[in-house]
Amino acid sequence: MTRTFGTLREAKAEYANIVHRRYEAARAPLSQITVDEWLDQWLSMKAEDLEESTAYSYTMTLARVRGRLGHIRLPDLTEDHVAAWMRWALQEGRVRGGKTATGLGATSVEMSLARLKEALDRAVTRGLVEVNVAREVTVPRKARKAERRARAAVPPWSVAEVHAFVSAIAGDRLQAPFLLALMGLRPAEICGMRWADVDLGEATVSITNTRTVVGNDIVVEKDAKSLAGERQLPLPAPVAAALTAFRAAQAAEKTAAGQGYEDSGYVLVDARGRTLNGRQLRERAYKVMDRSGLRRVRLYDARASCLTYLANHGVPDHLLARWAGHADVRTTKRWYVKPDVEDLRPTADTWGGLASGSDPVHEENVRCGSVNG
């Protein structure tokens, strides 16, 4: 089609009008999609940039939203809809993992809101909606405070409890993997470790591979969590000895099983060579704890016990972060260094100098100076 106008301004105005009409026509079908359909599209786009386990987490988190908001057309979704969902979720939104029709935790609701906000931000960018109607919806402070009061934080094991666990696993078939956990390795790193990563001659282990359980039954294998997570660590003598014994035990098991043995090359396997996952390792650890009368903690929390002990005993920050597999030691110290009251005992002794008028450090230096003199 060719059209003629009296001025260039008129021609440009009509051209802009035509482009706008074409854009509106192309967008019209999309404006009819529901929240459910848009979340499907958004998750499909996000999946390209997410680890499989993270994508699964996003899917499960948004499933809490879909039941009550999924049928609404995306342009018709309002802030009132989202706020009503939030209140319902806090009061009776639980459908699994506890008593049905009870409220979800504030943290769970905040996670769902965060993913919904992210999806709606993308809808705004795509021109499907004008504003993100969930942007100002937040979990009430009272609900967050109530959850913090109700949730009893389980502190990691103390040094004495670690010693008790070490004694309890002596002679256990999985002694070596348990000691690797006490070294601060993540359960996924222990599950993904292969004998090719272990150098018993040099007493080192390379962390390059992880195996994670998604949804209690899907095992996802991938590289280390981050570039910093890929690291080589020296093996303490007790761990090296346990790994040596474990390898010898697996060789004997392979001979006994004959053709029925699955030689996968992984360190964490059962007596027939079949790989074990993090859930199985955790359940075995709980059995040891229960049998020994030890306080139950997550095996992952052994990581905090290790890193707290190393920090308390003067390991420099850059080495502490390297051992943990973190790029920034602030992450290590914020989430994993958790001193208990006994760790603070030397601080109390130091404060005693303030109250008594004596400085233990100064007096020690004076004694050393007298001897040296």
Rank of each mutant, 00 (worst) to 15 (best):
G229K: 07
T275L: 09
G357I: 05
T275F: 05
L50S: 04
A285R: 09
D217Y: 02
Y266F: 15
S370V: 09
V341P: 06
T347W: 13
E283W: 07
A146Q: 08
R122W: 03
C368K: 15
N132F: 00
T347I: 14
D80I: 04
A150W: 05
A327G: 15
R279C: 07
S356R: 10
N216F: 10
R211S: 09
D121G: 07
I169V: 15
T4N: 13
A28T: 00
T347R: 14
L233D: 04
Q41L: 13
L90F: 02
T7Q: 10
R115H: 08
A106C: 04
A164H: 08
V267G: 07
A196R: 15
S44R: 14
L227R: 15
F246Q: 10
G369R: 12
W85C: 01
F178E: 00
D49G: 12
V205F: 14
Y58S: 01
A251R: 14
R282P: 00
I72K: 06
W323L: 13
A164S: 11
P346R: 09
L281G: 03
G273N: 09
R148L: 04
A106F: 01
P316V: 14
L8S: 15
M111D: 12
R148W: 00
P346M: 12
I33F: 00
A16R: 15
E147C: 04
N17E: 15
A119M: 08
E221L: 08
E262W: 06
H71P: 06
L74T: 01
L113K: 03
P316K: 12
V95P: 03
M183P: 10
G260R: 13
E189S: 13
G97F: 00
Q259G: 04
L90Y: 00
D199Q: 12
N209K: 15
G353D: 07
I169W: 08
Y336K: 10
A114S: 12
R211G: 06
K333T: 06
Q232P: 01
P140R: 08
Y309F: 15
Q91H: 07
R73S: 01
T59W: 03
A249R: 10
A256E: 14
I169L: 11
A271H: 11
E10L: 14
N216Q: 10
G314D: 14
K46H: 08
N312D: 14
V65P: 05
V82W: 01
R194F: 14
R186M: 14
E230I: 07
A28V: 01
Y309E: 13
L281R: 06
T138R: 11
W88Y: 06
V19F: 03
V109T: 01
R322G: 11
R279Y: 10
L233T: 00
